[in-house]
Amino acid sequence: MRDGQGKSWLTIIAFLCAFNLSAQEITVKGGFVEDSLLIGQDVNFWMSAIYPPDLEMVFPDSLHSFAPFEFSSKTYFSTQIVDGLAYDSTVYTIQSFEIDKVQYLKLPAVILKGSDSTILETPLDSIFLTELAPIVSDSTKLKTNLDYQAVDTQFNYPLMYYIIGGLIILVVILLLIFGKRIIKWFKLRRLRIQYEQFSEVFNSYIKKMKVDPEPELAEKTLILWKNYQQNLDKAPFSVLTTKEILSFDYTDELTEPLRSIDRVVYGKRVQEDVYQDFQQLENFTQDRYSKKVAEIRDGK
């Protein structure tokens, strides 16, 4: 990590420790560490929260959409309790491949309390894109050089133009014929990668739960499932209660497993077979994934 970024992180942490709030006040803040970025270069976005320690605060993870940025990694700082308040902070390392001169980002924090969820967002922050190629104005003066310069044999530019023109026409024809197939292929590939990443982590949690069915692990697994399901179905699963999730037409089969999981997560009960409920969630998600794949293939 660059020294400048390291100093910035220390500044952020020192800034967090300087807050003076009452015991019931909740504050979520965040912003870019750097002032500008280059395309594809790592930049950092800090996020902090101050809240009563009896609340449960959840920050975004790698499955969250950081658009127009791409997630790279994150550094989490352990929760600190100072003067009866909990202090959480995380620094996300992200990249951008967009060419907008000014790019914006804000991130949500979710407060979990009982069966309810509340979303608080950081202020919208901006960062400037640094352009490497300078703009040449009409008033720019050119340096005259009258010295003789040896040049190569004349290049056949007309032939080059014909070749480039032919390639452009060929590409346009291929896009007209296969454009929809190409777009469909990219959508299916992205969908498959996201599902495989989710399934790998989710099943690893289920295996751990068979050995150690702790309520904390069940809660972590439930949040992972809600975040992925939200991305798959484009519905706000991460902030919905079980009752709200079951109000969807296609979630009837989740009635028993979700209520059983709620008893473990919110009732803090150790239930040996809770992993079976999560297996039912995984089966549901696999079915929704298959239907989404079928929709894309059918052009819906």
Rank of each mutant, 00 (worst) to 15 (best):
D54S: 05
W9L: 14
D249M: 09
S247E: 13
T255W: 08
D54L: 03
Q276A: 14
Y161N: 04
Y148W: 10
R288G: 00
K243L: 05
D88G: 05
Y92T: 02
P134Y: 06
E253M: 10
L254H: 06
S36L: 06
L224S: 02
A49T: 02
S78V: 07
I119R: 12
K292W: 06
L105T: 03
D287Y: 05
I163S: 02
Q5W: 08
L175S: 04
Y157W: 15
V172Q: 04
S247N: 11
M47P: 00
G30H: 00
E214M: 10
T251A: 10
T93S: 12
I206V: 15
K243G: 05
V28H: 00
Q271D: 12
A294R: 14
T255Q: 07
I163K: 06
T118Y: 15
N231Q: 13
L246H: 02
N203I: 08
I81E: 11
K226C: 01
D100T: 02
E131F: 02
P52C: 02
Y87I: 10
I111R: 07
A86Q: 12
I182Y: 09
E282G: 05
M209W: 09
V211G: 02
S115D: 15
F248W: 09
A109I: 04
S48F: 02
E244G: 02
N145S: 01
V274Q: 15
N227M: 09
D152H: 08
E131W: 00
I12N: 04
D298P: 04
R263K: 07
V151M: 04
S260H: 11
D298N: 15
M57T: 13
L10N: 08
Y250D: 14
K291H: 15
L167W: 08
S139P: 03
M47D: 00
A218P: 08
E34Y: 11
F15Q: 15
G30R: 00
I163L: 06
R181F: 13
E256C: 01
R288V: 02
Q280L: 13
S137T: 09
V264E: 05
T27G: 00
D100A: 01
T242L: 07
L159F: 09
P68S: 01
R297H: 07
D61W: 10
K187D: 10
D42P: 13
N44S: 15
D42A: 10
I163Y: 02
V58R: 07
R192K: 15
I183A: 07
L176D: 05
V172H: 03
I13F: 12
G30W: 00
E282Y: 11
Q194A: 11
R263G: 06
D152G: 13
K184M: 11
